[in-house]
Computed example of a mutant assay.
Amino acid sequence: MSDEPQSPTSPASPIAPFPPLPPSGDHSRAPEFYGFVAWTSTSLLFVLFFLWALLPDSWIVEAGIEWYPSREWALLLPAYSVFLVLLTYFVYFALAIHATPSFSDLRAITDSYAHFPEPGVSQDNLYVSQASATGPPQLYDIPIGMVNRVVYSRRS
Rank of each mutant, 00 (worst) to 15 (best):
H98D: 07
S2C: 10
Q138P: 11
D111W: 02
P11F: 06
P56I: 07
S43R: 09
H115W: 09
S7D: 03
Y140E: 04
S102W: 12
A108C: 08
T134G: 12
L126V: 06
D111F: 01
F46T: 14
S104Y: 01
M1T: 10
D26H: 02
L95Q: 14
I142G: 09
V37A: 15
P137A: 05
P5K: 09
D57M: 11
A131P: 00
D124G: 04
T100C: 07
A131L: 11
D111G: 07
S132T: 14
D111K: 07
R29H: 01
S7V: 10
S156N: 06
T88S: 13
I60H: 08
I97P: 00
A30D: 01
D124L: 13
T100G: 03
Y152R: 15
L54D: 10
S122H: 06
A16P: 07
P19W: 04
T100E: 13
P117I: 06
A74P: 04
S13P: 01
S10G: 05
T88H: 10
P17N: 10
A63K: 09
F18Y: 12
G25D: 00
P17R: 01
S104W: 00
Y127Q: 14
R149W: 05
P137L: 04
A99M: 02
F50H: 04
S2F: 08
L48K: 08
R154A: 13
